[in-house]
Design a protein around this nucleic acid. Structure first.
Length: 609
RNA sequence: GAUUCCAUAGCUCAGCUGGAUAGAGCACUUCCCUCCUAAGGAAGGGGUCGCGCGUUCGAAUCGCGCUGGGAUCACCA
């Protein structure tokens, strides 16, 4: 909205002019434009410290001379320059801009904030990637929130986005839940037990861990009883753990396509995926394409062999193929086992190449926890070595771990915050609060509203942190609807909506009153306008930094400013019709920016709450 | 040993392309609903921005070195 570049260029050229007319030669350094820390200091600030030496004058004097010079211009942009100590600041006359902004927002409505900075760029983003042996927990929720939100932000910047999910549906860990089910399941099904499919399968994954431990403990005890040294006994027992060996045998059967195993695998996968899909639907997560590891795990082998032929990879004495990463200061990494089978990275090499063939992306973003930084560093390097020019367009959007007050979450030990449980308890909390506040009769659908508040709380809570950082989730302290939270934002949205509904009733009285921005002279009003106007820029920043928390901060700042303003000032009962009209227009602008920002971070907008 | 991330108020976090008295929320102490939804607003206390050195007119912000903490460095995923 504010044409900062125009002012910056003007200041640069006037300063240069002053420099030359005072007998100097050469080009001055670039001026720096910043935002003054307090509204009474104007809208733009140009610190002049850096030019003091060149001019041999104190920055305060430069600021004075420069502002006089600029104010004397007949064709300067709309605004007044003034010296503020060593800074030359500008107070803008925003009336014309505000009128333009208002009509822009009204005509663009839900499109306001979108830009064309990534117009035509094809961006693939991979996130979630659940295992089919357990339900989603808080760690997955962070991944999902970041992935979904980044997709929205990328789209808002004009990118053509393809959201992909890679289902981890094979491997020995999957066989573990299958084996436990086969052993202890007694034919239980989601229908017969009333347990959601992913939770049912998850129970057997935990059951396997118990069983494994029982057997292990017993074997160790037996060996010790026979006189084996305890440390040695543990080593022997671990290497010969029955459940573990059975799981490995089952994996071999799976790879050999033994019908009975495949059938069980399909059945249990379906249970988990149906359950996980329900969680996705419940939390507003969606994908454009699903990939399944069972289809992709063999990809990549040929590429590794090609690399060997080209001489970018080496073969070890035992036959394993590896890459020497000493050129980037890392260790060797095996890419293919000595028996010729694929490992994790082999598969990732294959899927990346496969995806680029499927849909030639301009960039591919992997939303994966920071634990795997090393892995991606190696992966990208491998693809670069293989000669794929798009290797430089791969990006690992790494995010920190979610810890509990007791430490790390462990699904095998059952110390996880389950996603479904979390949403359920948040929804329940929201419902209680609605009833306590007596809002239930006002609302059209208490269930839906409770759920939307829960979702707003969860998404905002998780996305407000810098993705890079780990955070501790303390259920008691984290789950709040007061203060800097999603429901606070939703509440502001609902309040504005409520006012605008009331305005509708008397709208006819204002048909002949036009929007005059000049009556919006309060500091809060100017600040709100500037915030609304900066929304497109904010979206751009979030996109560039791969950081949805930028949007959260924007929302909170704007809502906070709005609450302060409407607490102290009447809107519908303002002193003059012109003021009522102008304030209502401001409310409309704020509301639109807010709604559009909500969309980017998964906070449901509520007309009432 | 290598790679990497982090360290700001009692707690949880913003601020970091260098700039004007370092900001929120929670918690604590007060005040404000005959007034557009109090899931709100106002005021107060609370900080050697982990430590040191350097670059600079100027450093929470940049560089280097420490200290403390997390993660990774599997022919697991």
């Amino acid at each position: 909205m504010i044409d900062k570049a125009q002012w910056k260029n003007l200041v640069q050229s006037r300063l240069q002019n002053m420099y030359e007319t005072s007998g100097h030669e050469g080009k001055l350094a670039d001026v720096v434009l910043q935002v003054p820390p307090k509204p009474e200091l104007g809208d733009l600030a140009f610190p002049l410290f850096a030019f003091a030496k060149a001019f041999s004058k104190a920055p305060n004097i430069l600021a004075q001379q420069l502002s006089d010079d600029i104010n004397a211009l007949t064709d300067k942009p709309d605004g007044e320059a003034f010296a503020a100590g060593p800074y030359m600041n500008v107070r803008l006359n925003m009336d014309k801009m505000v009128s333009n902004l208002y009509s822009q927002i009204v005509s663009q409505s839900s499109e306001y904030g979108k830009t064309k900075t990534l117009d035509g760029r094809k961006v693939m983003i991979e996130f979630s990637c659940p295992n089919t042996n357990k339900p989603l927990h808080l760690g997955h929720v962070r991944n999902d929130c970041i992935g979904q939100s980044m997709s929205q932000i990328l789209k808002a910047c004009g990118a053509d986005v393809m959201k992909v999910n890679l289902i981890n549906n094979r491997g020995v860990h999957i066989c573990k839940s299958m084996l436990a089910y086969k052993k202890f399941g007694n034919g239980e099904t989601p229908e017969s037990s009333g347990i959601k499919g992913d939770h049912l399968v998850g129970n057997y994954y935990v059951r396997f861990a118990q069983w494994e431990k029982e057997v292990l403990d017993k074997d160790i005890a037996d060996l010790v009883a026979k006189g084996t040294d305890p440390a040695k006994a543990e080593e022997i027992a671990k290497a010969n753990n029955g459940p573990d060996l059975e799981a490995q045998a089952m994996l071999r059967d799976w790879e050999n396509g033994v019908p009975e195993v495949i059938e069980l695998w399909k059945k249990m996968n379906r249970w988990t995926l149906d359950g996980v899909d329900e969680t996705y639907r419940n939390t507003g997560i969606s994908f454009d394409k699903y990939y399944y590891e069972s289809d992709t795990y063999k990809l990549g082998k040929d590429k590794v062999l090609e690399g060997l032929k080209k001489g970018v990879f080496q073969k070890a004495e035992d036959g394993a193929i590896y890459i020497d990463n000493s050129d980037i200061g890392l260790d060797k990494k095996i890419l293919l086992r000595k028996d010729g089978t694929s490992i994790y990275i082999t598969q990732d090499i294959g899927t990346a190449i496969n995806r680029h063939e499927d849909w030639p992306f301009d960039s591919l973003i992997y939303v994966v926890a920071s634990e795997q930084k090393y892995h991606f560093k190696v992966l990208f390097h491998v693809l670069d070595k293989l000669g794929y020019p798009w290797a430089k367009d791969l990006h690992h959007l790494s995010y920190g771990m979610v810890f509990l007050p007791e430490g790390k979450m462990k699904s095998r030990e059952g110390t996880v915050v389950d996603a479904d449980d979390l949403i359920k308890s948040l929804t329940e909390m929201a419902r209680e609060e609605i009833i306590e506040k007596g809002r239930d009769e006002e609302l059209d659908d208490v269930d839906q509203t409770s759920h939307d508040i829960a979702l707003g709380a969860l998404n905002y809570y998780i996305l407000q942190f810098d993705p890079n950082k780990d955070f501790v989730f303390n259920p008691k302290e984290s789950l709040s609807f007061n203060g800097n939270t999603g429901p606070y934002l939703q509440y502001m949205g609902a309040r504005i909506s409520s006012m605008l509904r009331k305005f509708e009733e008397v709208k006819g009285d204002y048909d002949n009153v036009s929007f005059d921005p000049s009556v919006l002279s309060l500091e809060d009003e100017r600040e709100l306008i500037k915030m609304v106007g900066s929304f497109p820029e904010t979206v751009g920043k979030a996109c560039k930094q791969y950081d949805p928390s930028v949007i959260c901060a924007f929302l909170y700042d704007m809502s906070k400013r709005f609450s302060h303003w409407y607490h102290d000032n009447q809107i519908l009962k303002a002193d003059t019709p012109a003021l009522v009209k102008a304030r209502v227009c401001l409310c409309q602008m704020v509301l639109q920016a807010m709604r559009n920002a909500f969309d980017l971070v998964g906070i449901p907008f509520l007309e009432k709450m």
